[in-house]
Simulated scan of single mutants.
Amino acid sequence: MARILIVEDNPINMKLATLLVHLAGHATLGAVDAESGLLLARVELPDLILMDVQLPGMDGFVATAELKNDPVTADIPVIALTAMALARDQARAQEAGCDAYITKPLRYQELQDAIDWLIAPGHR
């Protein structure tokens, strides 16, 4: 069982992501903005982070770049979650250091496959 940090400001999306992660057999931590997500990531060192892109204040791309530039959190895989499905958005996620990119609405099998792939032994 992995510990997965979900950074999501929308309560309905947070509830859905939490449910899907629990159905996949993993534990969750939650943060409603990038700043608290960064702090929680540095303190708890989760196995994986689901990062909403459109957050109040600091966006998910900036937060991911900060995580990837910090030696303490650089190896934690990050999945960008976004309603934006344009190629330039996916490229921006990759530039920020996201390890995967999933568009909303979340689909269980797609999320589970991405989580399983990123937390597999030897992936990091």
Rank of each mutant, 00 (worst) to 15 (best):
D33A: 07
D75H: 15
T18L: 08
D75V: 10
I115D: 04
V62D: 11
P77F: 02
I79G: 01
A83Y: 05
S36K: 12
D75T: 09
G60K: 01
H22C: 06
Q112V: 03
V32F: 14
T73S: 11
I79Y: 04
E66D: 12
Q112Y: 06
G30M: 06
M51L: 03
D113I: 00
A87P: 14
A31R: 01
L67R: 03
A96V: 08
R88L: 12
E44P: 04
N13H: 11
L111F: 04
D33E: 08
H123C: 10
Q54R: 14
I6A: 00
N69I: 07
R88G: 07
W117V: 12
V7M: 06
T18Q: 08
A27F: 03
R88W: 15
F61G: 08
H123E: 14
L81M: 15
G57H: 08
L29I: 08
D89R: 02
T82M: 08
L20A: 03
A2E: 02
S36C: 11
L19R: 13
L86N: 14
H22D: 05
L111S: 09
L106S: 00
D59Q: 01
V78R: 05
V21T: 06
D99L: 10
V78M: 11
A34V: 03
D89L: 07
T18I: 02
V32M: 13
D52S: 13
Q94D: 02
I49E: 11
Q112I: 01
S36V: 10
P121S: 01
A2T: 01
L50T: 05
L50K: 01
L106G: 08
M58V: 14
H26F: 06
A74I: 03
M51W: 04
L38W: 08
D59A: 10
V72Q: 15
T73C: 00
D33P: 01
A80V: 00
L5C: 13
E44S: 15
I102M: 09
I6D: 01
P121W: 01
Q94H: 15
E110I: 15
N10D: 14
I12D: 15
P71F: 11
V21C: 06
Y101K: 12
M1C: 01
A74W: 10
V43Q: 10
I4D: 06
A120T: 07
R124T: 08
C98Y: 02
I12Y: 02
L5G: 12
L67D: 08
D116L: 04
L106N: 04
Y101Q: 10
A93K: 04
L55I: 07
E95R: 13
P11D: 04
R124D: 11
H26A: 01
V62E: 12
V32C: 10
F61Q: 01
F61T: 05
D75A: 15
G60F: 02
L118G: 12
E66Y: 12
T103L: 06
L5E: 12
R92D: 01
I6R: 02
D113G: 09
N10C: 08
A120L: 13
A63W: 08
R107M: 13
T64S: 02
Q54L: 14
D33S: 10
D52G: 15
E35R: 11
L45I: 15
R124N: 12
G60M: 05
I12Q: 10
